[in-house]
Simulated assay, not measured.
Amino acid sequence: MLQSMQRALQRYVAEVRHATTPRGYSFSHNLVLFDFTKEEVLTEWDCISDKDVGGRSHANLEINGKGTGVLFSGELDLSPPTDLSAKYSGYCAIRSKEKKGGWFERPYFDVTEFDAFQLRVRGDGRRFMINLGYPNMARKDDVWQCFMFTRGGPDWEDIQLPFKDFFVTHRGYMQDDDFSFPRETVATLGVLLADRVQGPFKLELQSIKAVRKLTGFSPVKVIL
């Protein structure tokens, strides 16, 4: 109970800082949205696959063997779904749960003072998609997406995804909407694998941050 009150107070202080900070200036060059080295973060995410709608793919989300992050793994199966009425197959994903909000906490992520997401990951060389969910989208299945290419190998890498590279999709199809996503009301973040390559996959995640740079962005990777 005491720890919960302390976290709520810390969030309140952060909100006051945000409200009293002039636009264009931030107390920090980054904001940690998810720290996957903490085991309790698993309760904040859902793991889904086409198996939930009659497909044959499967996925799991768990703490990795060394406790340095979470492991999103499974197998993508492109076989026709067992349920002939199923509309989609060939995908696995994880998605953060919507924040409930409260007296000292807003129900959304506010990344107004930043211009990119940075994910510290260790992948298998496959192409993933980063999804952003928003309340009150024009259509239920509209999401903002950006490609994330992983290197593979034993090293962790920091992948920066500029906000300007995100685009609107509807059920997997890119839309013509040409406007930036609303940075003040990010409801959910997700990682999607739907690259049409059958077989096993794995992606370890250590953190997701919103970051701010003083110069222009390019989709770069920093290998450490």
Rank of each mutant, 00 (worst) to 15 (best):
T82D: 15
E39N: 07
I48S: 09
G55I: 12
K202S: 11
L205C: 02
P154Q: 06
D110W: 11
Q160V: 12
F217D: 04
L31G: 03
L2P: 01
W144D: 01
M148D: 05
P200L: 09
E62G: 01
C47M: 08
R151N: 06
R56T: 02
V168T: 02
S180K: 06
A194R: 10
Q206K: 10
L31Q: 15
R212W: 13
N64G: 03
S207M: 05
D158G: 02
F147E: 10
N64P: 04
E40I: 08
F181K: 01
E44G: 02
L33G: 02
N30E: 15
W45C: 03
F104I: 03
V191M: 05
F36R: 00
N131W: 02
T112D: 12
T43G: 07
E105L: 05
E40H: 14
L205A: 00
V32E: 12
I63L: 15
W144I: 03
V32T: 14
D195L: 09
G74R: 08
L2N: 10
R212S: 11
G102R: 07
P219R: 11
L224F: 03
M174I: 12
S28W: 12
G199L: 08
K66I: 07
V70H: 05
K164M: 07
Q118Y: 00
Y12E: 13
G102H: 11
Y12V: 03
R95W: 01
C146A: 15
D77V: 15
G153S: 08
L33I: 09
E204T: 02
F166Q: 08
S73N: 13
S79Q: 13
T188C: 01
G67I: 10
Y91G: 05
T68L: 14
A187H: 01
E62D: 15
